[in-house]
Computed example of a mutant assay.
Amino acid sequence: MAKRKKTIIAGSIVKTIIYTAPEPLDGKRARAEKSRMTTAAQKAMNDKAARGRLEMLMAANFTGRDLFITTTYRDDDLPPNRAEAVKRIRGFIKALREHRKARGQELKYIYTTEEKHGEARLHHHLVINSTGADIEVIRSLWPYGDVVDMEYVGQRDYETLALYLTKESVTGRPVGAQMWTASRNLKKPVVRSEYVPNDTMLAVPIGCHIIEKEERVTEFGSYCYIKYRLPTHQSGGIFHRPNSEIQGGADALLLACN
């Protein structure tokens, strides 16, 4: 008998889960209980939910010193509709990309367009990689109003940021509208699924910080889910991964999870 194990590595964030899955020779009751275990495991992992995907996408591509930005419109420049607002933010992204390309710099981004909370005015939230000299450039390329907020990504955890960016996803997003838009050059989280011996236990590597942990055990099986942060250096309250860890690659990190 074996268990299923799934591990997702996204930058400094790791989600891993191990659970008992149904087998061909299981009786009706055992199969039902194991199926419930599988469902609970998938829910805990949350990698298929939009917010969970966004959290891990950001963790895989942005460090604590990248930027979270909010752009707004002055009254005279307020777009007449969402489509026009999206056109303007795309124009801003294009201008910023061209500015960086001329300097040999890459642009990575995720953005959302909102209009259903607060004063119900159209505005945008963006997460972009920082080059260290962005503030004045960003302000100069957004001619429609204020850049009302600009902070380091590291001032919030990825889950909180993903929750904030998708807060209009259920009731405020027009039918057919994307929940968020991301640049094509973003890296995908590393995912590995495998069968492991039934007596395999999950353990967090030394030096890691546990963010979430959930366990369930019945007479027919069990699941254990752990979400944790890999060791980081801390500088000025902003977390970022050390270069040696990045260069080590995903395989080394996966070995640490086993």
Rank of each mutant, 00 (worst) to 15 (best):
Y73G: 13
D47K: 05
N81Q: 03
R65E: 14
D75E: 15
K48L: 14
A83W: 11
G52L: 02
R65C: 15
T38Q: 07
A59E: 00
T70P: 13
D76R: 08
P80A: 05
N61D: 02
T39Q: 05
L57S: 00
D76Y: 01
R82N: 08
L78T: 12
N81G: 05
R82S: 10
R53M: 02
D47P: 06
A49W: 14
A85N: 14
A49M: 07
R74N: 12
L67H: 02
R31A: 14
E33A: 05
F68I: 09
S35T: 10
D75L: 15
F62P: 00
G64A: 02
P80Q: 11
G52D: 06
T63Q: 13
A30V: 14
A30Q: 10
A44D: 13
E84Y: 01
D77K: 07
A83F: 12
A40T: 00
A41Y: 01
N61M: 01
L54D: 11
R29E: 14
G52N: 06
D76E: 15
N61P: 03
T38W: 09
T72Y: 03
F62T: 05
A49I: 05
M37D: 03
M37Q: 11
A44C: 11
F62A: 00
L54P: 07
R51D: 12
A59M: 00
T70W: 07
M56E: 13
R53H: 07
E33H: 03
R82A: 09
A60G: 02
D75P: 11
R65Y: 12
R31H: 12
D75F: 15
K34C: 09
M45F: 11
L54H: 06
P79S: 01
R29H: 10
R31D: 10
I69Q: 06
E33F: 08
I89A: 07
T63C: 07
R36N: 06
M37E: 06
L57W: 07
Q42A: 14
K87S: 11
N61G: 01
F68M: 09
D77G: 10
E33Q: 11
I69K: 13
P80N: 12
E84K: 05
M45S: 04
A83C: 09
A50G: 01
Q42I: 02
K48N: 15
D66N: 06
A44I: 13
L67R: 14
A85I: 09
D77I: 06
